[in-house]
Simulated assay, not measured.
Amino acid sequence: MAKPKTKSKSKGSTSPGFNKAVQLVLHLTAVLQFSYGVYIFHNIQMPNTVPFAGKFKFLTFICAIIQALYYIVSLVNDFVGTNELAPKRPPAIRQFKDWLMATLAFPVALNVGVTFWSLYAIDRELVFPKALDPVFPSWLNHILHTNIVVFIVLELFTSYRAYPKRSKGLTGLTVFMGAYLVWIHIVKHYSGVWVYPVLEVLQLPQRIVFFVTVIGFTLALYLVGEFLNNTVWAKEVKLAKRKSN
């Protein structure tokens, strides 16, 4: 007598409950650490820095706020929104979550992490002078410059998001980065000091090249995030396209 056939799970498959638990733990852990990191950084008295604009003149601080906001939105979405791979009518909280991840959270996090550690390896005095060591704990430095990259990459592999139209996503990111460059020039105008020591050692032509490179690099990171999302979630992307047609 032939045995009835049974459906077997693929080797790489996991249950929806397990995926939901992973997402929930990741989002809760990220909310706690980045919110706490923002709080501690905001209250640190940094020596030899211009008080104008407080910590809001640092892209690191703004990036940490973006990460905290993103994971708070993600946590809310876990409970009142949906993590369905391709919902026909995604709620507003899910749409905002997907847009925030694609347009700001991923590219800005990688920008801050890669740029900081690259300059740190060349000469730490350009971005994180030794004078900060007594007041700026190393664990906070890693939350703000290392964990932002680790967690956003984990997020990309554990949660699918629908990327906006490339033109809209790149426009949003360009506006953000352009506004920040204008902002640090305003800080320089009123304080007489550049936010980052590296800008002090660059001549005007070099600063222009530096700014153009940073913006170009950040826009490239957006495309990297889109490529990784479409590669990791290839089946889901195809499903979403079929549903939208």
Rank of each mutant, 00 (worst) to 15 (best):
R124D: 00
L69C: 15
A131V: 14
K188R: 13
G169Q: 05
I122H: 04
V38L: 04
Y39C: 02
N147L: 12
V195Y: 04
F136C: 02
I40L: 14
S191A: 12
A92I: 10
L110A: 05
T60C: 07
T49M: 09
I208K: 06
L85Y: 11
V214I: 13
P107A: 06
T146H: 00
G37I: 03
K168W: 10
T103Q: 03
N141W: 02
T82R: 10
E226Q: 12
Q67R: 02
V209L: 15
A234E: 14
V209D: 03
G216I: 09
I62Q: 13
S159A: 12
P51C: 00
L59F: 12
F58G: 05
A220D: 04
L104W: 01
V31L: 08
H185A: 07
M1H: 08
S10Y: 08
F157M: 14
F79A: 10
V114L: 15
V224S: 08
Y160H: 14
L199D: 00
L202I: 04
E84C: 04
L219A: 11
N19R: 15
L223D: 13
L140E: 04
V175G: 07
V193H: 11
T171C: 12
W183P: 01
N230A: 11
E226K: 11
V201F: 01
K7W: 03
V214G: 02
S159K: 12
R94L: 01
K11P: 00
N83T: 09
L239S: 10
L219E: 15
L85F: 10
A220L: 15
V182E: 03
K130A: 09
V31I: 14
F58P: 03
P4G: 04
T14N: 05
K9V: 09
D78W: 06
I93N: 02
I44C: 07
A68C: 07
